[in-house]
Computed example of a mutant assay.
Amino acid sequence: MMDFSGKTAFVTGAANGIGLGICRALARNGANIALADIEPAQLEIARRELATFNVRTRAIEVDVSDAAAFERAADQAEAEFGNIHFLFSNAGVTLGAMPLWEVTPAQWEWIFGVNVQGVVNGIRTLVPRMRKHGEPGRVINTASIGGLQVNPKLRNGSYAMTKYAIVALSEALALDLEDSVIGVSVLCPALVNTTLHSSSRRRPVRFGGPYERPSSDAAKAWQSAGLPPDDVGMRVLDAVARSEFFIFTHEEPRTWIEERHARILAGFDSIARYNASEPAT
């Protein structure tokens, strides 16, 4: 079982939602925390709350899609705490339900910039530093249950595309680190009560700036009915302590994944039928 007490975690998307839930769980377990987020005011509020747990904290404003900015954030964290042991790449955004042909080039750059390149920047920046100090640690990448299937009700294809990438990235990283003391996990939550639906208000100017994304009352109600972020934080730390790779937050999506798996197997059954019916050449 992995111990968090006295270790240091770097958490992106830490100002609210799942990121803050993870930070609270870390604080309760005695970890020092570098909170990284693009919202400075909300980030400082979160830092002050976590400081009441008598752990060391540092708020670092950063746009995770900016590689140079991530490097500077890592430098600040190391200057404050020394060695980083845990990287929680949790920052994410969504465009909501919209047909893929309606997604603009700027929107594609933003959602892939944060959801995929932000995780890549974390790995490129911090994993070499973690390997260099040689102490046990773990990289935890937040994907989504949407990283394993495209939900026909949510119709959130652009978001799912980025989260599929994070699942593959995490599987590849686990292979790259299999002979090291650094483990890898991928968090695939289902519905959680977060501010993800309002992420358009946090879009950086270089991607077009903040905007109001239409959101139906049904979508907001569905989101608010999700699991509390603090519950997710506790679940994540339990799984990390046990060195689990896939971290799920709900049991119900198992059926969704089984249905997708059945479609994949049907494709293999089809090629087997085709090959069996073809004369040898």
Rank of each mutant, 00 (worst) to 15 (best):
N193E: 07
K220A: 08
R201N: 04
A219H: 11
S224W: 10
Q223K: 11
F207W: 00
S216C: 04
P228Y: 08
S199E: 07
P210H: 00
N193L: 03
D231W: 02
G208F: 01
L227R: 00
V232E: 02
R206H: 10
P228A: 13
P210M: 03
P210W: 02
D217T: 00
S199L: 06
A218E: 15
N193K: 06
G226Y: 08
L196D: 02
A219M: 13
R203S: 03
F207A: 03
P229G: 06
H197L: 15
E212Y: 10
P214H: 09
S200T: 03
R206D: 04
F207D: 00
G208L: 03
R201H: 01
V232K: 00
S215K: 14
W222R: 15
H197Y: 15
N193T: 05
P228V: 07
V232G: 02
R213I: 05
L227M: 12
T195K: 11
D231T: 11
A225C: 14
S199V: 06
P214Y: 04
A221I: 10
T195M: 12
V205C: 07
V205E: 14
P210E: 02
A221N: 11
R213Y: 06
A221L: 12
R203W: 01
P228F: 08
L196F: 05
E212C: 10
S215P: 12
A225R: 14
P228S: 11
A225Y: 12
P214F: 08
K220H: 07
P204I: 04
R202H: 09
T194W: 06
H197M: 14
E212Q: 15
D231A: 12
W222M: 15
Q223N: 15
A221D: 13
S200H: 00
A219K: 11
W222V: 14
G209V: 03
H197E: 14
Q223V: 12
P228D: 10
S224N: 14
G209A: 07
P229K: 04
P204E: 04
G209I: 01
R202M: 08
P204Q: 06
Q223D: 14
A225M: 14
H197W: 14
G208Y: 03
Y211S: 09
A219S: 15
A218F: 11
R202A: 11
V232Y: 00
D217L: 00
H197C: 11
S216N: 02
R202N: 08
G226E: 09
R201V: 00
P214L: 08
G226A: 10
G226V: 08
E212T: 14
D230K: 03
R202C: 05
P229F: 01
V232P: 01
R206Y: 04
T194I: 07
A219I: 12
S200G: 06
A225P: 13
